[in-house]
Write a protein that binds this DNA or RNA. Structure first.
Lengths: 217, 217
DNA sequence: ACGTCTTTTTAGGTCTGCCTAAATTTTCAG
DNA sequence: CTGAAAATTTAGGCAGACCTAAAAAGACGT
């Protein structure tokens, strides 16, 4: 059995290994977990002893099969709870991340099974992220970042990569909601910012920083 | 802000101070929290520094107003989650205690407010225990223990004091459910065991150990 | 290929919550 | 009232997860 902290490290390693090819660095983990590199090294030794990660000193880190299974289990719980908080308790999608960070560590297999069934086996969380299967597989989505879409293309906003309250409230204010259809009107060369048109006809200015966190299909 | 452990000690002190008059002893706390007396002493010093308990060495311990407020807040969360687990997720009343022990420590005021409202402001948990008010007051029930009921008296089973899976499954097997009406037929003098008749007409043998954990009105 | 800069690890320390063993205080029987 | 037993506290330690400072390893420009 793993501690909350260990589960958080596994999740962090998983999510960093999606972001960049190759192994995950100690410094990147330190930043994501808001700790110092030395603390990360301590934990890596421990996770390595438990055979949850492949780790060679100075070489970066990668999840073992078992480590990935556990990481996906935590992510599954996190996303199911987010669905519960939004669908059942009526929280806004911008308010659920921190609470789900706590709920994801509740230990009870039966609870996850029942919650999943109570929520009618949702496939996606309120941010559009796919929910890992009970068997520990992450469904493929094939979404692209909005930054990869060309001028004139019409696409649907499917998911967001950033879950902070600030970012999501910014989207709300811009009228960008999950599932809405948007068309890229202009791409500014010098800063890669975009002008996109929404279903309602209004035009929204979107910086690259925002666009790279929007997934479309 | 308190740690999980501190919250558990506050809850333990609260529940022991209901059981016996006067201050709570170190040993009683050690038994309830499944730790050693020396560890309890450590924690009492800490809680005393935070002014959550009245504590004089060798004299036992009592919650301050603030300590009681916090204890009741934890108990409120525990009982609300138990209602959720039984009413919404379909758990048996014998299976929810351990999960609620974890959920009760989730930190979010908004979550408790929404959960309470989602559950339609329940007054009692699945074991018949009253749910403390948001203001931090424990509702009075006036229930008696079944051991205090005389022969021939007909009463209604309102709550149970013991929440272990084993005890609750025993009640289920005996046909004793919350809300059922029972009549005391016989009290055996030598071991204080009872014969009670249920609504359905069947007669149930009830040892004193069981009867003292049944609350009726 | 070499010195410098960056990254990572090691060494040694803190704080929390637990432990055992020993000392102290309280209780209670006679 | 007193001395043994019981309850409690103190002393000193350990493990988890973090820290700072210093050492070691790796990366890189010239």
């Amino acid at each position: 059995m793993q501690s909350f902290t260990e589960e958080n490290y596994l999740k962090a390693i998983y999510s960093l290994s999606l972001r960049h090819e190759g192994d995950v660095s100690t410094n990147a983990l330190a930043e994501l977990t808001a700790t110092k590199a030395a603390s990360v090294t301590d934990m890596l030794r421990k996770l390595s002893d438990k055979e949850l990660i492949h780790y060679k000193k100075y070489q970066g880190v990668r999840l073992t099969e078992e480590g990935e299974r556990l990481a996906l289990q935590v992510i599954r719980r996190h996303r199911l709870w987010e669905v519960f908080l939004v669908e059942k308790l009526g929280f806004g999608w911008d308010a659920v991340h921190d609470i789900a960070e706590q709920l994801e560590h509740i230990r009870s297999d039966e609870l996850v099974v029942r919650l999943d069934s109570y929520l009618s086996h949702p496939q996606f969380d309120p941010h559009g992220d796919p929910i890992p299967t009970p068997a520990g597989e992450m469904p493929e989505t094939g979404y692209r970042k909005l930054t990869e879409v060309g001028v004139g293309e019409g696409v649907r906003l499917m998911a967001v990569l950033e879950h902070s309250t600030e970012f999501l409230q910014h989207l709300d204010r811009s009228g960008l909601t999950l599932g809405c259809i948007i068309t890229v009107q202009t791409i500014n060369d010098f800063d890669k910012s975009l002008l996109v048109q929404t279903e309602t006809g209004s035009t929204v200015f979107t910086s690259q920083d925002v666009a790279k966190n929007l997934l479309v299909s």
